[in-house]
Amino acid sequence: MIVDSTHRSWILGCTAVAMAGTAGYLGYAWLSANGPSGGSIPGLIFASAGTGLIVFECLLSLRKKYPASPLGRVSWWLRAHVWLGLLSLLLILMHSGFSWGHGLAALLMWLFAIITVSGIFGLVLQNWLPRRMMELVRREALYDQIPMVVWQLRMEADERVEFLTADLGMLEDLTEFVRAGGVKQYFDPAQKAGAAEKQQVFVDKRKAVRQIDIGDEAAGAMRAHYLEEVRPFLFEKTTPYTSKLFATADKGAAYFSHLKTILPVAAHDVLADLEAICEERRQLAVQSTLHAWLHGWLYVHVPLSMAFLVLTAVHAVISLRY
């Protein structure tokens, strides 16, 4: 979520409420004989307001679970989540008299601090990383599609290298999936079988003989370099060696520049395409890393928020009991 001008009303509203709350707190702290206390009437009012906001914060998960809900747009809920969350922290601090407390109260304060810090961290990342991703990842894919795209990149690289080396002997199960973007449909089974047969002839021919003759020695070198260094990089989990080899676009370019010097000119088109495939794979790896940063904080923020909600209920009941 990008913090932009649409947040202005939330910022102003929450700031106004925070200032009013602070004024009330200062007056209460000034007049209170023993200083602010969570168990006093004003302290309980701050606690009730803060807890109410926290419960509302947690309802965001439910709202996102039902996208078609008529209870306002998710973007509205997200803005409310950010600014009311910060406001709730202030209210809870006023409830505790800006002290950390002991026992369960201290645990709650620690949890709240971690939740808030992780939320702010996530908000900062969400405002910075997407722009950074636009610069670093030109070949962005849907995150969940990355394994599928990587598999297709590997298949494509195999096919292109087989123009230079003939059959590589790589046997992988062909994954059938529903392709987006429109696929030629054959309503006549005979037509479909004919097209498949034509495709198979094409594949068989490519695997049988080198379609681009670069000589046995060069073909062997190409095969070795591809199988040892390039192909391992085209898996979802790459090896440390290949990750280092193609860590940056410059390193990848330098590697393929080296191959172009040891292989004939006839192989350079295939090498150029392999370089593009590896660069796309590298960008997808960068995307995965950035995605992990962009969403990793949620593994802390969301579960701890739910635990915090439960412990807050326990704290409220037990505190009122005593």
């Binding site: 070949r139 894919a141 849907l142 969940d144 599609q145 599928m148 795209v149 297709q152 494509e156 292109r160 123009f163 999936f177 529903v178 392709r179 987006a180 973007g181 429109g182 696929v183 094409f202 021919k205 490519r206 003989v209 379609q211 681009i212 003759d213 088109d269 295939v270 150029a272 395409d273 593009a276 495939i277």
Partner: peptide
């Protein structure tokens, strides 16, 4: 006659065809 080698072209349709429409059904 050897097969013609077609250089790699990443057009919109080609990129879209790499997408599995059922990816949300797959375990994550």
């Amino acid at each position: 006659k050897p097969l013609d080698y077609q250089r790699r072209i990443l057009d919109t349709k080609g990129v879209a065809q790499r997408v599995d429409l059922d990816y949300l059904k797959r375990p994550n």
